Amino acid sequence: SAVVMEEGSPGEVPVLVEPPGLEDVEAALGMDRRTDAYSRSSSVSSQEEKSLHAEELVGRGIPIERVVSSEGGRPSVDLSFQPSQPLSKSSSSPELQTLQDILGDPGDKADVGRLSPEVKARSQSGTLDGESAAWSASGEDSRGQPEGPLPSSSPRSPSGLRPRGYTISDSAPSRRGKRVERDALKSRATASNAEKVPGINPSFVFLQLYHSPFFGDESNKPILLPNESQSFERSVQLLDQIPSYDTHKIAVLYVGEGQSNSELAILSNEHGSYRYTEFLTGLGRLIELKDCQPDKVYLGGLDVCGEDGQFTYCWHDDIMQAVFHIATLMPTKDVDKHRCDKKRHLGNDFVSIVYNDSGEDFKLGTIKGQFNFVHVIVTPLDYECNLVSLQCRKDMEGLVDTSVAKIVSDRNLPFVARQMALHANMASQVHHSRSNPTDIYPSKWIARLRHIKRLRQRICEEAAYSNPSLPLVHPPSHSKAPAQTPAEPTPGYEVGQRKRLISSVEDFTEFV
């Protein structure tokens, strides 16, 4: 048969007729292969192709491409040299491709048809291009793949890379869960390890502090508590009631339409708007009261037996805890006409967050109470924005700035309102402590230090009264110190430094 060459192609190359033996071998191979691939376009007849790359030819070592076609129900084999250009295909004639002069020997084609199974398996396991790669995943090629499931790999992101949580363990979102698992493993320790309690022994800490320079003076030496005195035992138990972190309780009120001037209507609300609910979820963490331990979680007086509701929101960081007394989460009882059960919590909070959804101005004093010092007013606006402002009593104007209003988005509203309420509550605590000038409020841990110092002074006084020969370590507060001759004046800087060093040991009130 003659071949018409394309323009620009090399000279004529004689194409030899395939021997009958080659056709029989390739026909047997075509019957084993699956003929249901995917359909081509209507211009080209339905056909199945599979590209198999052999590394070497037997005796020649030339890479070839073998295409199996099922045109007219008769499979045909096409061998081509890759750099050459194939002729145009037609549905009426068999596929013809040019070969190099080196394939002119018909014996070479017979060798190609009689490829060993080793070469076929190696060509099938190679990388296939384009559409033949999808075909190689079918059941027909499963014989050339190794048996057994593939090893499982770690989760992959859409980009093909490992997620960040699997790369950096410290930033993994499941870090707290692993800590819980470690605690569970520790709890399952053997009885021999049960006595080993991690941490620092208080006796060891005391020993280090006792021999430090801070205890060089007799006034700073630790003293032993009497065991037989019940009054001192009660004082030590009272110390446990003062937490070592700051605590805040903040009221949250929802004002519906037409309720801006009605205290009873505001306290009777059992739910609010959708934006109000989203605002609550951002204030803190939802907790169930019956599962809380009052000595570990500050509840601000809420009952854990269901008297004040089942849930509330709280927030904490390293040095403070805040609980929100939310009116809509507290039960509304029919027998309580004046809502006294709610007001006994909300009316005693220094700061209230008022979500004013009424469309009218909310005035300070609508919720009557002796300790309502500051109101954080949240007014929802259009386009997911809110107006946040402050209202306070006249005696609080020096501590709280009420002249600045803020426009905040719904997303950042819980954070801004919480921070403003916490700052206002700190100012309210300082303002409330002014009624007792001898006990200015600095912080909870300073209050613990003052309680310890008062307890020490009482013990020293009782020891001096029981044994008059012992001198008083600290003179009583009601006694007057003996007159001392004025010492020589020293520079102001040295006096300030000495006073600062003494105050650092005794108390921190002056620095606050």
Rank of each mutant, 00 (worst) to 15 (best):
L501W: 08
Y254Q: 01
K221P: 15
L238K: 15
T490Y: 08
T366V: 13
I319D: 15
N372S: 10
A405G: 08
N220E: 15
K343H: 09
L501D: 15
E278C: 08
L253Q: 01
G258F: 15
Q259C: 03
I319L: 15
A487Q: 12
A463P: 12
D240K: 04
V404A: 11
R498M: 13
Q419L: 12
K342C: 05
R448W: 07
K290Y: 07
V376P: 00
Y274T: 08
D318P: 14
V335D: 15
E288Y: 10
S389G: 09
L289D: 15
R498H: 13
R448N: 12
M396P: 01
H474R: 09
T485R: 10
K333E: 10
V335H: 10
Q241Y: 07
K343D: 06
V378C: 10
K221N: 15
Q230M: 11
A417K: 00
E218S: 06
F508Y: 13
G398A: 08
F279Y: 00
Y254S: 00
N227A: 11
H248Q: 04
L422F: 08
D291A: 13
L387F: 04
G282P: 00
L472I: 12
K363S: 14
S435A: 14
F415Y: 03
V404N: 10
A463K: 07
F279D: 00
Y355R: 00
D246W: 06
F373M: 15
P222I: 05
R458Y: 14
N356A: 00
L387P: 01
T366N: 04
Q419W: 05
T485K: 09
L422E: 02
N269S: 02
R448Q: 14
M426P: 00
E257F: 09
V335K: 12
W445Q: 13
P471A: 09
H338A: 14
L399H: 10
L329F: 15
A405W: 15
G496E: 11
S273N: 03
T281Q: 14
Q259Y: 02
G258N: 10
L280H: 02
D295W: 05
L239E: 13
E494L: 07
T490R: 11
H451G: 08
H474L: 15
R448T: 09
S428G: 04
D336Y: 10
P226E: 15
S504K: 12
M330G: 04
R456Y: 13
R458S: 15
H375E: 15
Y383H: 05
P331V: 05
H248G: 03
D308Q: 14
T366F: 04
P380M: 00
D341Q: 15
I319W: 14
G398C: 11
S428A: 15
D308R: 11
S231W: 14
C314G: 07
R339N: 11
S231Y: 15
T366D: 04
P491H: 11
P243S: 06
S231Q: 13
I377G: 01
L390W: 03
T281R: 15
I407G: 02
C292L: 08
P294K: 13
Q484H: 11
I326E: 05
P380E: 00
L225D: 13
E384T: 04
K368L: 08
W445T: 12
S273W: 01
S504M: 09
R344H: 08
C292M: 08
L455W: 07
V408S: 02
N386W: 00
D439S: 09
P491M: 13
T366K: 03
S435K: 11
S358H: 01
D295G: 09
Y313Q: 04
W315M: 05
S244Q: 10
M396Y: 03
A483G: 13
N227F: 07
L455I: 10
V400W: 15
S403Y: 04
S443H: 06
A424G: 04
Y254C: 00
V297P: 15
L387Y: 05
N425K: 01
R454M: 13
L239F: 06
G301Y: 04
K342N: 05
H432A: 07
N220L: 06
R454G: 15
F311G: 06
C292I: 12
P471C: 09
K368Y: 06
K249E: 15
K290S: 10
H316Q: 14
P486I: 11
L224K: 06
H271V: 13
I223L: 11
I367W: 06
K221S: 15
L390H: 02
L387I: 09
V378D: 00
L346M: 10
S273I: 01
L329T: 04
Q237I: 05
D357C: 01
C385W: 15
Q429C: 09
M330S: 06
T247R: 10
K368G: 14
S477R: 11
F311W: 08
R456V: 13
Q237N: 10
T277M: 12
L470D: 15
Q429E: 06
S219W: 08
I223Y: 10
K333G: 10
T509W: 05
S231P: 12
R434T: 15
E360P: 02
P222V: 08
L364R: 14
